[in-house]
Write a protein that binds this DNA or RNA. Structure first.
Lengths: 337, 337
DNA sequence: TTGAAAGCGCTAACAA
DNA sequence: TTGTTAGCGCTTTCAA
């Protein structure tokens, strides 16, 4: 059978209270008994049951992560770095793939509460806002990544998508492009990136042509290819297109390719996320890098601080993206037309 | 405070035993009290504590997944489908990213045991075999993916890498290629794929030239590019190269590109894994698809059956890969040289 | 059909 | 410095 604290206590000739104090470094224990008990624990290969100590009201040292889709490399990296930081701080990670489905969100949250996780991290595309509101009301430790809810007092870590969109556009403008298209998906990040794009145009004294922004029904390369087509078939087609993530941008490249357009000579293209995809396509894709590691580590720090009651305030951390210039973008003067 | 079974019992005017029986569908309870108690549970929004029931020796309905690197898309997909199937069967997933580091493996396994997970799934590249042996000796439910240990009685699900390598080579041979190189990584899968490649050559009556197989120190595109270079600079350079995963194959393509070689006219290239990368490069990469979803679902089925004591036997499931032909491979007669 | 009570392994207040 | 003991919330045996 499994070794319990009783076995240790008996073999060491002390009480369970003494053993417990030694495990948790509490109270005052003589060096002598401490050594003796530790020796017995080693011999017996004793591992305290976290279940039992959790039942006594202590922490489970487990956090839940609600994420829409692990097969998306960006989310997988979030998960990786969250796990990494959690592990450094002694927390395990329970992963819940929600498919951005509100029913699953509900189910998972209630399950995580039944399992008494110490806190929950909610990633992008979370639908069921009411659920979050309830959790906050209960004082349940919660943190958000890539999902900002200005109306709710929740710790969050986001990358400045607005700035990302602004920088991309500013860069394209600096290359001389004035007629700039956007292929986006429907989520919050894309919306922010579009806003940044628009503001950059305004700041440059240009007007915004709504027809140059298309939003894909599904965030896939195939859809982007299709929608980019309509942009490229415009009478006055854009000289540059901003894809709100790398897959979309590559869809744009493919649509251009199908029409016999050469990148970057006929069309500049830029993406977002700096996935391996962007390094592999020909020409390599200019893009924007998110500080994924920082985001993951930061959100765990915020959450664990809440869990440990060290911080009552709400923190909203905004991290800055970084533009990476490769071969898919070009000065307009050097372009063919 | 949190609602407990006592609150429910008191409000419903029954004992906790009765409530417990109703929750677990055990014993015999009159329809009347059942309804009454269920109504109270609803009103109170009662959620049984899994911690407490776990302490009583019941299952935690949690499984652990030890995986080397979540940022590798293949592993992320494993995780996704494992989580998916787990969720269908009522199990949560605790993710542990080991970096293929034996110390972390040890730490995680002991942690998972402290947290009383019901079983553990171990993915590719696991180092610490002794650890697994101990787990088996204890009768701890265990299952493997993409990692076959013939010496140990563990349930496992693998894809037939040998067959994959064989099929790739057979296909290349059917195109007329005889001088076929391989760029591999150092793991078990690559070794199997190489063996399949060699057997296919033998079966075709050809001899194996060991110099045509290079193994990268690190499984990255950069390394593959470097090593493929040495293959391409050979006096009698291969007319086709098999990259043991898509990243490696793309490294090969890049090395070829740097040398002014056109794919597939000067060189056929084929990969493995069918990641998005393979669809995005130009020319698109022929590759081999693994049934990731089947693998993930299958391994969870095996493990949970062990957990529930429904199966004492060891199962080794081998799934078959599928070759996908795209544009990076060509009949040798159509090639330039 | 129902309930009383013991106990899962641990912690912490209190006593010695 | 150490030990006694009462629970944490649940399940299960046994008796009613």
């Amino acid at each position: 059978m499994k070794i319990t604290i009783y076995d240790v206590a008996k073999k060491a000739g002390v009480s369970t209270a003494t053993v417990s104090k030694i495990i948790n470094n509490k109270g005052s224990i003589s060096e002598k008994t401490k050594l003796k008990v530790q020796k017995v624990m080693d011999e017996l290969q004793y591992q305290p049951s976290m279940i039992a100590s959790a039942l006594k009201g202590k922490s489970t040292y487990t956090i839940g992560l609600l994420i829409p889709d692990l097969s998306n490399p960006i989310f997988a990296e979030y998960a990786k770095y969250i796990e990494e930081r959690g592990q450094e701080l002694g927390f395990s990670l329970m992963i819940c793939n929600t498919d951005a489905n509100p029913d699953k969100e509900l189910k998972y949250i209630s399950l995580l509460k039944q399992k008494q996780v110490d806190g929950i991290i909610v990633a992008a595309r979370f639908k069921n806002i009411k659920l979050l509101r309830d959790l906050i009301k209960e004082g349940f430790p919660l943190a958000l990544i890539a999902r900002d809810l200005p109306a709710l007092p929740i710790d969050s870590v986001t990358v400045d998508d607005y700035l990302g969109g602004y920088q991309v556009t500013e860069y394209l403008l600096s290359l001389g492009h004035k007629n700039i298209g956007v292929v986006a998906e429907g989520d919050r990040s894309s919306k922010e990136r579009i806003k940044g794009y628009q503001q950059a145009l305004i700041d440059a004294g240009l007007t915004i042509d709504k027809n140059l922004t298309v939003v894909c029904d599904h965030p896939t390369r195939e859809y982007a290819k299709f929608h980019a087509g309509s942009l490229l078939d415009l009478e006055k087609r854009p000289s540059a297109i901003f894809g709100c993530n790398d897959s979309l941008a590559i869809g744009v490249m493919q649509a251009a390719h199908e029409r016999g357009l050469i990148i970057p000579n006929d069309l500049s293209v830029i993406g977002f996320d700096n996935t391996e995809l962007s390094q592999v396509v020909v020409p390599s894709l200019s893009t924007v890098q998110q500080p994924l590691k920082d985001i993951g580590h930061h959100v765990v720090d915020l959450l664990t601080r809440k869990i440990e009651g060290k911080s009552k305030m709400t923190h909203r951390v905004v991290l800055l993206p970084d533009i990476i210039i490769r071969q898919s973008t070009m000065q307009i003067e050097n372009m063919k037309n």
